[in-house]
Write a protein that binds this DNA or RNA. Structure first.
Lengths: 235, 235
DNA sequence: GTCTATAGTGGGATAGAC
DNA sequence: GTCTATCCCACTATAGAC
């Protein structure tokens, strides 16, 4: 259940341009950090210990990651890349909207599971608006757009029929749903995060039904207003 | 616009039992902290500076507040008390559901405004499950229940007609809406948080309409499922 | 460009005397 | 309840090796 994924996280940030050797060092630091985060927790995994474990000097660790938080950012990027990979089967095989969305959301829970224990520390920093780690920040725009794109594929490959305007906003709305799942997941201390999985499995059919109801005559006007509001508040 | 409220915040936590002298010291620390937070920002308002400003030693400051974050919690409690007071006129005078909800939500924005700049610091606690400051934690249950109670009064004093089960869950749902508003507000850098105010004013009528639609035949079954889900995931 | 070693700063938090 | 002294750690600075 709580195994580290066999494959290494392959990180895709754009910090210092890579030589093979540099890449190796960089990866060693990330591996050491992730290992220590899991064993000791975020606070007790000191930069000294991480550098030590990776077999480099503190100075060198800071050469690659300008703060302890940036180390987390690397981890965050890794989860996103893994998520895209883990979601691929669902996006290839499932045809109904509900199955596709469930597949993508559960894939995230699977991918994130090994890091659940210290994830709180990470999301804590992410929740602060001034932090570059915030999912709403410009710094994490690339990551965010990639995640939204995943949900664009959920919608586009599905059978669902919706008003054009709603369909256009839906990927972003589903990304917000995913953020909600993450918030729930962070607080979920059940074995293997079973409660989060149950939430996804029960919530998705409801979302699916709600979306189909938007074509109902009495509801359509309301949906237009919601769309209008969304567009008004987007920066 | 950004004035500190003239009246001192009277804090209602339950940390060390009060002697008059203790109360005085405690309040001096809070006053110093709030002043420095606003002038220098959270990070630069060091515990040393706060203790200094309050005329006590660092050790003494930690005697009253076991961490810098707990200093913020005291603050948070103060905002909630102020919010209840500021919401009272709306709860006494407004009769429609929409007006009552708008009044309560805008009262929060008014009360919180002077501290918008460093508010992000305490908001990030929401995301960290292990923190006693999390709005979902058992430690902040009293505060949370008081806030939910405010929304219970929004519902009870209003003209809205809803299915019994939905009506029972509504105060908690409205509290979640308020958390959403807080999330938006924290990221809102517009002058006087005008965008948040606009959001509230546009979103409330939509919520109002959506709630009234729940009595529609095609929608009723969906609402029952949502209620079922909510009850299933509540711990 | 990659890396080491080391010395130093500042601030959150604590121990223990009074 | 209050203080002083101290610890620990993130982070910086620097000087230089390969």
């Amino acid at each position: 259940m709580s195994e580290v994924p066999a494959a290494r996280l392959v990180i895709v940030t754009d910090s210092p341009a890579r030589s093979p050797k540099a890449e190796q060092t960089r990866q060693a630091i990330i591996d050491a950090a992730m290992g220590l985060f899991r064993i000791r927790g975020y606070d007790k995994a000191t930069m000294r210990a991480i550098a030590d474990e990776a077999g480099v000097s503190i100075g060198n660790a800071y050469y690659y990651f300008s703060s302890k938080e940036h180390l987390i950012q690397a981890y965050y990027d890794g989860i996103n890349a893994e998520h895209a990979a883990a979601a691929a089967p669902a996006l290839e095989n499932a045809t109904t909207f509900a199955d596709r969305l469930t597949g993508v959301l559960l894939a995230w829970v699977d991918v994130a599971e090994p890091y659940h224990e210290f994830a709180g520390k990470f999301f804590k920093n992410a929740a602060e608006p001034s932090s570059p780690l915030s999912p709403f920040s410009t710094e994490s725009e690339t990551t965010r757009l990639a995640a939204i794109d995943l949900h664009r594929r959920v919608v586009e490959g599905s059978d669902i029929k919706l008003a054009k305007a709603l369909r256009a906003e839906l990927p972003e709305l589903l990304w917000l749903v995913q953020m909600g799942v993450v918030l729930f997941w962070v607080h979920d201390s059940s074995e293997g995060q079973q409660r989060t999985r149950a939430l996804v499995q029960q919530a998705v059919p409801i979302i699916d039904r709600a979306l189909r109801l938007t074509r109902l005559p009495g509801v359509r006007g309301l949906v237009d207003d919601v769309i209008g509001l969304i567009r008004a508040i987007k920066p």
